[in-house]
Design a protein around this nucleic acid. Structure first.
Lengths: 237, 237
DNA sequence: TATTTATGATAGCTTTACTATTATTTTAAA
DNA sequence: TTTAAAATAATAGTAAAGCTATCATAAATA
């Protein structure tokens, strides 16, 4: 049995991905009922559409066709819901990485794959789950840092809410060390890759003069930049 | 006459730094009155203490000893105030950089100075202004990205609210090009340095396992990491 | 069939985010 | 110095956000 992200079979032979979630993130497990799944599904859509600041449980309830109080039975507040979605995302990304780099021997090729995964627009896995991964990816780019950039970081961190992010970071850090065991900053480089894959994407779209990709607006350029950055650092003398 | 950040003499021979602010950021210029200056001063303190989410104009008014309506005469809402503070900060940083790298010939030394400035805890300039630069620096680390991570980015960007950030980024990009005129990603590397100087600091304090500095928690290590990252990228073959 | 459990419907309360009105004070022009 | 203009304080009020509580009903389970 694998820890955290694990794949399990669902009815009708569909491969259903199950991300193991921290129970302290919710009041009632949203994956355990239709309403819960609807909360996840519609919150992704609504946050994507309205932005996290304008997103409210009332609007979400209207979208779903339930009541505000109904949502509150699942999540304490919208911050917890965002942290839940972020944790789900990090878990999902780590699964994608371990899955997609499974057979790759060369750690440098592995790391390139990781960079590509992080900086690429995700296609929705359609049948995989009630969560639209493509929208979620975009949400995390624009709203993800708000999950930890609060006065609650320390408390949330004590409750392990950011464990999936840390595990992802550790996993990437290990690939980095495989590339160059003497490299001194594997974790920081990993978090830099992750954050910059997202921020450079955001900047390219909305504040292009903070990047060098404003003209073409191609994600392939962000990937090229990150590869350049990372492999110059890891090059052995 | 220099554009944007300029130094001007104040009464009693004190050197008073004047950051040129975008007029669309405020309703009434906060630098033009005592109340306005108090709004800036106390908002920095209150955001630092309570965090941006819990920060309200009502609490700010109580702190200052004025009324909520009084604050609204200066700023449309707390988002605009945050953008104002961020713009002030970027302007101030650009001034610091141009001032502190003024006599340096070697662009590599210049760039090192820039990295040091961005990743260092700022000491408050005390007499310089009603804004506590040290607190503001900490605010920007924790809240700064919220200035642009909103559904308003495009509108705000059209109104040039992020010009100081862009100018800073361009200035650092130019130093990068002085180091290596063939480097392909000067802007993106500049925004990476800026963001990572802040994020790695935040992570080191609150989510240390996302970094390699958790044990010592020394900013000098962040500086060393960023130097390593940047100069490996800029090294000429 | 009885009973637990989840949901829906409704109400209500506090805080946030904001606007408007009038009185009063300060500043600056005549 | 008077007078008018501008800024501030005091107060009130509204709509929405953020949350809790209650009770009836429907669905799942024992």
């Amino acid at each position: 049995m694998l820890p955290s992200p694990q794949a399990a079979k669902a009815e009708s032979m569909k491969l259903q991905l199950q991300i193991q979630m921290n129970e302290a993130l919710y009041l009632r497990n949203p994956e355990s009922s239709e309403l819960g799944k609807n909360i996840l599904k519609h919150s992704v859509q609504l946050i994507h559409k309205a932005g996290f600041e304008a997103f409210t449980f009332k609007k979400l309830a209207e979208d779903i066709g339930t009541t505000e109080a109904g949502i509150y039975r699942y999540f304490e507040n919208k911050h917890k819901l965002l942290v839940y979605l972020a944790a789900w995302y990090w878990g999902w990304v780590e699964y994608q990485i371990s899955y997609q780099t499974n057979n790759i021997e060369d750690p440098a090729v592995k790391l390139k794959r990781v960079i590509q995964l992080l900086a690429s627009a995700v296609e929705d896995d359609e049948e995989t789950s009630y969560i639209n991964e493509s929208l979620l990816h975009q949400i995390i780019i624009a709203e993800g840092s708000k999950a930890y950039l609060t006065k609650l970081v320390e408390a949330d961190n004590k409750q392990q809410f950011f464990k999936p992010y840390k595990e992802l970071c550790a996993a990437i850090g290990n690939i980095i060390l495989e590339c160059n065991p003497k490299y001194k900053y594997p974790r920081s480089l990993a978090s830099t890759i992750i954050e910059m894959a997202h921020f450079q994407t955001f900047f390219m779209h909305y504040l292009p003069s903070l990047t060098d990709f404003g003209k073409t607006k191609k994600q392939s350029e962000i990937i090229a930049y990150l590869n350049d950055l990372v492999f110059h650092s890891l090059k052995k003398k």
